[in-house]
Design a protein around this nucleic acid. Structure first.
Lengths: 353, 353
DNA sequence: CCCGGTCCATGGAACGGTCCAACGAGCGCG
DNA sequence: CGCGCTCGTTGGACCGTTCCATGGACCGGG
């Protein structure tokens, strides 16, 4: 088929409005019902008419109107994904996992940025509710929990990569942060470290990772030498916490290893170490969390806990599919086992044999 | 209002389906037309009835159905944003800029990941067309250009942060990559560097940045000492290109400065320098592009070209608004002036006075 | 030849909103 | 007192689909 840029003879431009199913029907010389059948791929249509309809669709450049369709079908085949904090790209693998499963079930994903909620006063969850998406996936931490609670009453909802809020019929899928933190800490202990510090993060995830750290040091009788500094999960926060921890004034008590809340604050700690003249991993070992591409950068090459995002995404998708199928199960809480990814930022402590 | 978890007495759960405008009307003892008027904030409604309707809406938890609404109004007040490569978060500021302007005009943004096009065979642009979004913004490079051409014939479309494809009625807004590359290169030249290399990237953006580099070195008569290595815009690619450039075998000819296609490949070059025993910026100066948060990490602290993403986003939004207003102007091509952000990865060359 | 069944095809009633024409009440004015 | 105007409110048409009930053509069997 030739395509022309001149508006005149292009049948697609004939009407000011986009072509409808009636236009297609008229052009193909059939009823709109038949066109509808062709669109659904019904087998009870003769080949001749099917072809005629298909040709008309192509010639007009017809696209079904999702609004009209979902109005009567009462399904949109669309899942809303609420993202937050696009700057911290730990969720990218999670989205891949989500999409692979959802797409296999004929669902498409639309994303919205939850950060904008606060910034501009729009309620993104509400937008998805008005669009009548078939389901909702909340990725990570959400600023506004009240709005979500209301929406989740009506819409199959799953929270992925975070452990809160706990809501009546909302499943939670995340990596086992406490276990991941234990893995990281035990790795340091097994290398021979005795004075280990933790740079903590905020929220439930922060609490869990801190708890895992504390459990591990306690289990090995190292809790008296363990320190925890609070931070906010940013590079700046990690830097400042590390400066406090590595303060040269109390040199003898300085930790030989630091487990940070996430990769980005771990990088902050790395900078602090460098400024204080400490070489990583010779003088100081560092472990991050999330195994983002930051950790994989050669120049940083951080040992980090892989939070199994892809798997979390896939499982979240399956939970959502179950909910959408109408199984009114009580809210579940799935934990996926994280794994430690050992790279160049950890080694035995300075005085080790 | 008390909220209960028991389904029995919650009026919201009365019907299996979500409440409609008729349900609200019935409960408020008015006609559905009046409810509609209240929803639009019409002034020709008595206060008493307005309150009654508002109460009914709250009690039922009513949310207007966007599908029904857009069907008759023939507007969705929604703009589709096609993202690509979520792993490279240079576009985050761009989205902020976009959103600020679009939201001020009563439009909401929905995002979709274009990478999925190829991976799973879904056509995301088509999805937006079926949803009848009012406009489309393409952010960055798109895998499938044919599909876009077709959609752009029907939908007001703007490309942001990339210079292609060139389509009949599609505006392009991006930073002036050629100029940014000149800025970066001239900064190195003014520091005293004479042997300067460029790690090139792919696509039109890659070509433009390379062209800017070449123009600058030529203008200063340094083109005979200039080298260009091809790469793919990844850390790995930057690393490999840098290894080739800094090869110790031809030590005397080694460049004293490298301008990389983007921050991430610049980080790759940084790693290569480190491995070869070169100290940045003492032995080697590095400049990146995009001024992502990578460049701002203390431990990296790269001099980088700020691509003015926020501004690009705002301008793209304005272009789209103009197109949506029906001004059938020919495709425009706006360039926003980038600025150099000088940090710690650049200094005078080793032998400088 | 008529009847029942199969196979394609069709008209029309939803779906949940918006918007327009129309309508009654109340009021001021001639 | 009646006319016209404004104000607040309402019924109904319509948007573009899906789906259901129905219709006609054709065929084989009684």
């Amino acid at each position: 088929m030739e395509r022309s840029n001149e508006r005149g003879d292009d049948p697609r431009a004939a009407a000011g409005r986009p072509p409808t199913i009636r236009g297609v029907a008229e052009r193909a010389g059939v009823s709109k019902s038949l066109v509808s059948l062709v669109l659904q791929g019904s087998p009870r249509v003769s080949d001749a008419k099917r072809r005629a309809v298909q040709d008309a669709i192509d010639e007009l450049g017809y696209r079904p109107n999702a609004a009209a369709r979902s109005l009567v079908a009462r399904r949109t085949h669309t899942v809303g994904v609420l993202l937050n904090d696009l700057r911290n790209p730990w969720f990218v693998d999670l989205l891949d996992g989500l999409n692979s499963v959802l797409h296999a079930h004929g669902l498409r994903m639309l994303m919205a940025d939850g950060r904008l909620d606060r910034r501009t006063g729009q309620d993104v969850a509400r937008t998805f509710q008005e669009l009548r998406v078939d389901g909702l996936v909340v990725v990570g931490t959400l600023p506004d929990t009240d709005g979500l609670a209301e929406v989740a009453e009506r819409l199959p909802t799953v929270i992925a990569g975070n452990h809160e809020p706990l809501l009546p019929h909302v499943d939670i899928v995340a990596n086992d942060d406490e276990r991941g933190a234990r893995l990281a800490t035990e790795h340091l202990i097994s290398l021979g470290h005795r004075r280990i510090a933790h740079i903590a993060g905020r929220g439930v995830v922060g609490t869990l990772r801190r708890r895992g750290f504390e459990a591990a040091v306690r289990a090995h009788g190292l809790h008296t030498a363990a320190v925890v500094e609070s931070a906010d999960g940013t590079e700046e926060g990690g830097y400042r916490a590390a400066v406090r921890l590595l303060n040269p004034a109390r040199r003898t008590e300085r930790p030989t290893a630091v487990f940070a809340f996430n990769d980005i604050s771990c990088v902050g700690a790395l900078s602090a170490a460098q400024e204080l003249g400490l070489t990583v991993p010779v003088d100081l070992s560092l472990v991050g969390y999330d195994n983002t591409y930051l950790a994989r950068i050669r120049h940083l090459w951080l040992t980090s806990v892989n939070n199994a995002s892809h798997d979390v995404g896939r499982r979240a998708a399956r939970c959502l599919l179950d909910r959408m199928a109408g199984k009114g199960a009580p809210a579940g809480h799935q934990l996926v086992a994280p794994e430690l990814e050992i790279r160049g930022s950890t080694a035995p402590p300075p005085g080790a044999a």
